[in-house]
């Protein structure tokens, strides 16, 4: 008779649960070691710096859920700032913001979405291409210089200011996250996103318009990148062609850390928010302890590896249990 170990049902926990525990442990630990960490100014600093990656990460979660990826978010962010700096001198601020967001969504989302969703090209290759294109255009237009922008209160609140007692970026994150959670959970489109990523053939056979679902997620990703671009301008009061360079990799790392699978079909917005918040907390903790910023990259890498390894162990444990159950069934 084999002994059957009953692990506390790890598989019934959402995959981000462990990370949430780590985050809480890290916050408690850091506040004991370094009281300055828990100060309200530092905490709001963490939230402000995490907000932009989280907004990008939510868009990234949509694309990765369909088994795609959007590497162009960082350059779309920079392109947004440059475009805004051009429009803002010619029209009211609100109109400039709206026009910028619409153009970036239509152009970046359109190129990515049509080539990947409709024509079926590889998302990695295409968005690597758009990454280069919009970063390059941003440099060309500005000749490599940073433009200062008189942002006014609206844009400033989105990226940096306060909305009552709450940091503006936190409000943006909460609204975007809640809307996305709802869309993924309670709309046909949201369920189609999971279905396409989980088994595209099955989704097609069930009547899901798979190409349109894939097209839509790249529009969502571009729209959120544009929003993040506006927030960045609000934060820095300027638009730089270098803005958000390399941020797509941090964002992907956070999304994967939060339990979303690169192969598609599995993942959540909650996981992404926690994943990116955790990365930001770690980096803030290291900074506050005076650890070199070079180490932060090493730590991010190690965390990512550990998370994926942990996920694999959980999956293989679950599949082994499944085979055991199945062979029991056949024995009956």
């Amino acid at each position: 008779m084999k002994r059957v170990f009953k692990l506390p049902s790890l598989s019934s926990m959402p995959p981000w649960f462990g990370l949430l525990v780590l985050e809480v442990v890290l916050i408690i630990g850091m506040s004991i070691i370094q009281p300055a960490f828990i100060s309200s100014s530092n905490l709001s600093n963490i939230i402000r710096s995490a907000a932009i990656p989280i907004v990008l990460g939510i868009g990234m979660t949509f694309t990765i859920l369909t088994a795609g990826i959007d590497l162009s978010v960082g350059s779309a962010l920079a392109f947004t700032g440059i475009l805004l700096s051009g429009f803002i001198t010619h029209m009211p601020r609100f109109a400039a913001v709206l026009l910028t967001v619409i153009i970036v969504t239509a152009v970046v989302g359109g190129i990515n979405g049509i080539l990947i969703g409709k024509i079926g090209l590889n998302s990695f290759v295409i968005t690597l291409g758009t990454l280069g294109i919009f970063r390059g255009i941003s440099y060309l237009v500005t000749n490599g210089t940073t433009r200062t922008i008189d942002t006014g209160t609206l844009i400033n609140t989105l990226g940096d200011g306060n909305w009552g007692p709450i940091p503006g970026p936190a409000v943006v994150v909460i609204v975007v996250a809640l809307l996305s959670v709802w869309a993924l959970r309670s709309t046909y489109f949201g369920r189609d996103v999971y279905a396409v990523g989980g088994n595209e053939f099955a989704a097609r056979l069930a009547g899901v318009f798979t190409s349109r679902v894939k097209l839509t997620v790249y529009f969502i990703s571009a729209a959120l990148a544009a929003l993040a671009g506006i927030m960045q301008v609000g934060r820095l009061q300027s638009a730089a062609p270098t803005a958000g360079a390399g941020i797509e990799l941090t964002v992907v790392a956070g999304v994967l850390l939060g339990g979303t699978r690169l192969s598609g079909g599995v993942g959540s917005i909650t996981g992404t928010v926690i994943g990116l918040l955790f990365l930001q907390t770690v980096s803030n903790s290291l900074t506050i302890q005076g650890v070199s910023s070079y180490w932060q990259q090493v730590v991010t890498g190690v965390l990512l590896g550990a998370a994926v390894l942990f996920d694999r162990i959980q999956v293989s444990y679950a599949s082994r249990r499944k085979y055991r159950e199945e062979s029991n069934v056949t024995k009956e």
Partner: peptide
């Protein structure tokens, strides 16, 4: 409606 020979379920849903 076709119930295909290939697996046509979305495994993680």
């Amino acid at each position: 409606t076709l119930v295909s020979q290939e697996l046509s379920l979305v495994p993680h849903l």
